[in-house]
Design a protein around this nucleic acid. Structure first.
Length: 792
RNA sequence: GCGCCUGUGGCGAAAUUGGUAGACGCGCUAGACUUAGGAUCUAGUAACGCAAGUUGUGUAGGUUCGAGUCCUAUCAGGCGCACCA
């Protein structure tokens, strides 16, 4: 009998199911190994042949580890909340839960066909109350915590309150952006609402007025990683900066740990580097510049403290709170006009339009070292979101300051010997200092690096500022004005202050609504829910959580998915610990992979989990691109000319469905049947065939280049598909899908089968193996071991 | 601009520690079998050359008895960050 893959695969898949072969249980007598795939968002389009690439690799590795005697945890689930289901619901009125459930069923069917060894008893779905109960629970813990900068960990907010009652906020070691001081007496004299409001400056999950990425077209705010070049990643709609009251997570408090712990994980250099860039540590100093003839001071951040003698002006971001403070009556007209102008521009336009613009505020600041007065400007080249939103400008040694100085004709003082600043600034942190000494501070003759260190020392001693490490990493915006997401376990009290729901009321279930659109008065969709109030009758939060909420701790839930007392049992967590091998796309580098590290560290601070990092080893599988096929229509006719003859005609290339093309030869009958437009098509052939052209493009419906794994499995079997995907090249590499080579792999499996099946029966014997046979078996084992190990 | 990664036949790609470059597969060429098929099997296939042989891992150097592999510079492609002070 020939290699009958469909019978073989059916039989064994049934056996696996019946005997729960891949079910994993805590077994302390065995070493554990946790292999995880990034769980998919179940989209309506189903899986294409690129999706399972990583799953196949990790499946092979999971099996390999299991054969080596490890107790392997290898689960799968669904990231079920998401925008597409909601947008489909808005269009069709179909409840997202219905379409999501359908899509999941379809995904499962497709995954099963490929024969993965997942432990399906551990499946999670982020949209199920039993699952999102623990997403809400973690949020409540964050709401009830502050970040202690001395202990470098999250602590209960009650401890901070106790500190305030005794000492006020001076020396409280809490991570915050709030920089005013209050005493114990002032704290104790505050009303409950005032205290609640104040605590929002300290909570790890807090609601605050922040500059957010507002996408009008999507009707929601977005996190930084959901925006690229001023456009939403999903949909590509314009995004503008807006000051709004939103829930945020104090991810920035963890920036230092997120950065330093990268050294403890086995990820690729490029991925670690991407995260380092995103976290963006920069060491510098904060310095106060007194406003002339005023009691006010402006706080700036600089990495080039050494250039203090070259500061010839200051610049504030248009959104800076300092703007009102320093704008003089004479200049208020001009400033107002400029702010209007800036406001009209989107983030994207600001990026593209690099023209120098700005306005003089009318005030001057005093250089704390030289004592000289310098003008204060307002310009949008300074960002409100970074540092303090104010800078000291050193045009001689910063190209942006240089351009501004040239435009407004401000003085440029070179500070480094030999630097020619007549045409451009000298930005390198290298050289010998000059023009930089007075009775307070002497930098002349020092190397730049020495000068930076000396100036920092001086700043601290003279009390005009402090050494400061700044991070680019922002707090994560956690509200979404959407329906299809986790509801916040938060209600608003009579003072309109957010309050935590008691843990006993979790999960707070997503309510039904009549439509999935915002309300007429612009409230989020949950504003349509009837009786959307807490058990105490107070109104509940109307926003929902963002997509990354549910995916931030799912790897923990897999360890103990049916536990309704805890996210994960302590003992169970101490057995499985962390993911040993995580496989997924690199597009999550600055989103999911930051958020779940943050989430994990927060839980670690309280001892809910035992490992500070969630993913020990991480591999990014490459993207599989599509390989499109083309036919060439002679313009204005229904005649199609084969690839190598097309240059003799004036032709127009047309995408043709790759599923009616084999080894680039077009199936002419199927083409005529493909669309009514082509039913009368005529062909100019070469060697009796119509050969199609091809191109590498993104795999998508509109290019007709989507290859469905089901079709491959039906035709060649799951083993051929799996083997072929591995055969395509290194798992990490992006590469085009090309079905052309699949016959070779299929032949290999047939030949392998023929080794053991002589046409009648299996060629098996109980006789001991010969020396040569053993030799080749061991050679084979060695090779395969080395190859599989090389993957991880 | 800063940083990271990758450059090997017509194509996808191999090459444990520095030790016969191109395994395996696609494609191509020739042949066998045949109930002519998008089946199977056999042989060949880096380039140049009739051959002996010569040259070959983006380019230019270097270290070494020996370099695809290590070092330096450079070019090309991909990715990340970016008025980040």
């Amino acid at each position: 009998m020939d290699y009958n893959f469909s019978e073989i695969e059916k039989k064994w898949q049934q056996y696996w199911r019946d005997n729960k072969v891949y079910s994993a249980q805590v077994d302390k007598s065995k070493p554990k190994f946790y292999v995880l795939d990034m769980f998919p968002y179940p989209s309506g389009a189903g899986l294409h042949v690129g999706h399972p690439l990583g799953y196949i690799a990790s499946d092979i590795y999971a099996r390999y580890k299991r054969q080596q005697g490890f107790n392997v945890l290898h689960p799968m689930g669904y990231d079920a909340y998401g925008l597409p289901a909601e947008q489909y619901a808005i269009k069709t009125g179909q409840h997202p839960e219905v379409t999501t459930t359908q899509n999941i069923a379809r995904y499962r069917e497709q995954l099963d066909k490929i024969g993965f060894c997942f432990d399906w008893d551990r499946e999670v779905r982020t949209c199920e109350p039993g699952y999102y109960k623990w997403t809400q629970w973690a949020f409540l813990k964050m709401f009830g915590s502050y970040y202690n900068t001395e202990l470098q960990k999250a602590c209960p907010i009650e401890e901070l309150v106790a500190f305030f009652e005794k000492n006020g906020n001076k020396g409280c070691n809490a991570h915050t952006n709030y920089d005013e001081v209050f005493t114990a007496e002032q704290w104790n004299a505050m009303s409950k609402a005032e205290k609640d409001e104040m605590l929002m400056n300290y909570r790890i999950a807090y609601r605050g007025k922040t500059m957010v990425n507002w996408c009008a077209k999507l009707g929601t705010v977005l996190a930084n990683d959901e925006v690229s070049e001023g456009l939403s990643v999903r949909g590509g709609y314009p995004v503008e900066q807006k000051l709004m009251n939103q829930w945020c997570l104090r991810v920035s408090a963890y920036a230092g740990r997120l950065l330093s712990d990268l050294d403890t994980v086995a990820w690729t250099d490029s991925l670690k580097e991407t995260q380092r860039n995103w976290i963006g540590k920069s060491e510098g100093a904060e310095m106060y510049f007194k406003v002339a003839d005023s009691d006010e001071s402006l706080l700036i951040f600089t990495t080039r403290a050494d250039t203090i003698f070259g500061v010839t002006f200051m610049v504030l971001a248009p959104e800076s709170e300092y703007v009102d403070l320093v704008t003089t009556p004479e200049q208020s007209e001009a400033v107002k006009a400029y702010l209007e102008e800036v406001k009209k521009k989107t983030e994207r336009e600001r990026l593209i339009d690099k023209k120098v613009s700005g306005v003089f505020s009318g005030s001057y600041a005093v250089n704390p070292v030289t004592g000289k007065n310098i003008p204060i400007y307002i310009s949008d080249y300074v960002l409100a979101g970074y540092g303090t939103g104010a800078i000291m400008a050193v045009p001689a040694h910063d190209s942006r300051d240089y351009a501004f100085a040239r435009h407004f004709d401000l003085p440029i003082i070179p500070l480094i010997e030999g630097a020619d600043v007549s045409e451009e600034s000298f930005d390198a942190k290298d050289g010998i200092m000059m023009n930089s000494s007075n009775e307070k501070l002497q930098l002349n003759g020092l190397q730049v690096k020495e000068a930076i260190a000396k100036t920092k020392e001086y700043i601290a001693e003279a009390g005009i500022g402090r050494v400061k490490v700044n991070y680019r990493l922002r707090d994560a915006i956690f509200s979404r004005q959407r329906y299809w997401g986790e509801p916040f376990p938060i209600y608003y009290d009579e003072n309109n202050q957010p309050q935590a729901l008691p843990e006993s009321e979790l999960p707070l279930q997503l309510p039904e609504v009549d439509k999935f659109l915002p309300t007429e008065d612009g409230e989020p969709p949950l504003g349509r829910a009837k009786n959307w109030v807490a058990t105490n009758g107070q109104p509940l939060e109307l926003c929902t959580m963002p997509g990354f909420a549910g995916s931030s701790a799912y790897y923990l839930r897999y360890m103990d998915p049916h536990n309704d007392q805890a996210l994960v049992d302590k003992d169970v967590n101490e057995y499985w610990r962390q993911v040993d091998l995580y496989v997924g796309g690199s597009e999550h580098a600055t989103g999911h992979l930051i958020y779940s590290r943050f989430w994990n560290k927060f839980l670690y601070d309280y001892g809910y989990v035992c490992e500070p990092e969630p993913f020990k080893k991480l591999i990014n599988q490459g993207m599989i691109q599509g390989r499109s096929n083309f036919v060439y229509r002679i313009k204005g006719t229904q005649k199609y000319v084969s690839l190598h003859l097309k240059d003799e005609y004036d032709v127009q290339p047309i995408h043709v469905d790759v599923n009616i093309v084999s080894n680039d030869a077009l199936d002419i009958d199927k083409f005529r049947a493909w669309s009514p437009e082509y039913k009368d098509a005529e062909f100019i052939l070469e060697n009796g065939k119509y050969i199609c052209g091809w191109a590498i493009e993104k795999m998508s419906k509109s290019m007709y280049n989507v290859v469905n794994p089901d079709d491959i499995v039906d035709r060649y079997g799951a083993d051929t598909l799996r083997l072929y995907e591995m055969f395509l090249g290194p798992v990490e590499a992006s590469k085009p899908w090309d079905t052309n080579g699949i016959d070779g792999v299929n032949r290999f499996l047939k030949r392998l089968w023929a080794q053991f099946w002589n046409g009648e029966e299996l060629r098996l014997t109980d006789a001991p193996a010969s020396k040569e046979a053993l030799k080749s078996v061991h050679k084979l084992i060695k090779r395969v071991t080395a190859d599989v190990e090389a993957f991880s």
